[in-house]
Design a binder for these strands. Structure first.
Lengths: 155, 155
DNA sequence: CCAGATAGGGTGTTATTGCAACTATTTTTT
DNA sequence: AAAAAATAGTTGCAATAACACCCTATCTGG
């Protein structure tokens, strides 16, 4: 089987897709382990951090800024609420909206989550200079924009 | 809330993690749509392509080279087998091994899958030069190695 | 030769995620 | 003002993925 030679164009050859998915899966595992003590899963921490940063915020706004389906958001928020980190309050001006706030426990756990995420980031960033990391982020942003037609605004 | 100033070090600030996960999720959706006509899901195509490239191969070897849990591999292969794209054969020399082969249908569908993946790749690569893309791949490889302790060898 | 170790696979359960379809509320249209 | 459309959120279902644990086949040491 000798299909080892790369086509010259932008054909098959190596692709970012496989790296992206492997990195994603492994990061999920790492983050799950780091956040297990707080009973926050890999599907919830993004929302927790985003709420901390933009409180009060609706689920719709969260979904859009994180580029995550609204039903996924609903379920993640439900878990964070069940754990006592987030509180929902119906917007009195429009009862369709649920305004999300951190609870006291939420405010206490956020710095710990941030530290855990920084540990993961630091580990996965090893061997990459600040300049290279900037390039990486810039290119990932382009890929994401190509996929979503929007900017993603994490954190 | 003014935590907007970046710590000078490699502290919080922007992180590749969020981009990685958003890209991963959106690529899954795109690929699922592209491969739906062949009833191949986003969880199976990697295995199909890897088998096409390294046939015959065991599930264990697949799991290791793709950095995917063996039970995930087992289930994906079961689906590909159910669709008639892959055939299992017990290694006569050692009955613990299942050697995986493409079927005729598998051999026919592989080029179509490859084209679909190339379309996705092409779309997501827009605005990135060949040189930049090489840099992207190199940096992603480093991140993956940091996470897995191994090289990943996709496709 | 047989007990135990080793190794490849598989099953059951759980978490994350997205889609289709639904409810409830608000806004727009007629 | 009543009907229709839009909007925020939820529920049920299915796919992806991993872990803990179990099964079965092979190999090794007594």
């Amino acid at each position: 089987m000798s299909e080892r030679e790369k086509p010259p164009g932008k054909g098959t050859a190596e692709s970012h897709g496989q790296y992206i998915s492997a990195i994603y899966r492994h990061m999920q595992i790492l983050i799950s382990a780091e956040l297990a003590p707080y009973r926050i899963g890999s599907g919830q921490y993004i929302f927790l951090m985003a709420i901390a940063f933009r409180e009060p915020i609706t689920q719709k706004a969260l979904s859009e800024s994180l580029l995550i389906d609204k039903t996924t958001t609903a379920k993640a928020i439900a878990k964070l609420e069940a754990e006592g980190y987030v509180r929902r309050e119906t917007d009195p001006a429009d009862n369709r909206y649920q305004l999300l706030y951190l609870t006291e426990e939420g405010r206490e756990v956020v710095p710990k989550v941030r530290q855990a995420l920084d540990r993961v980031k630091g580990k996965t960033r090893q061997g990459i200079s600040d300049e290279e990391y900037d390039v990486l982020l810039r290119l990932l942003k382009i890929v994401l924009r190509n996929l979503s037609g929007r900017e993603g605004k994490p954190e």
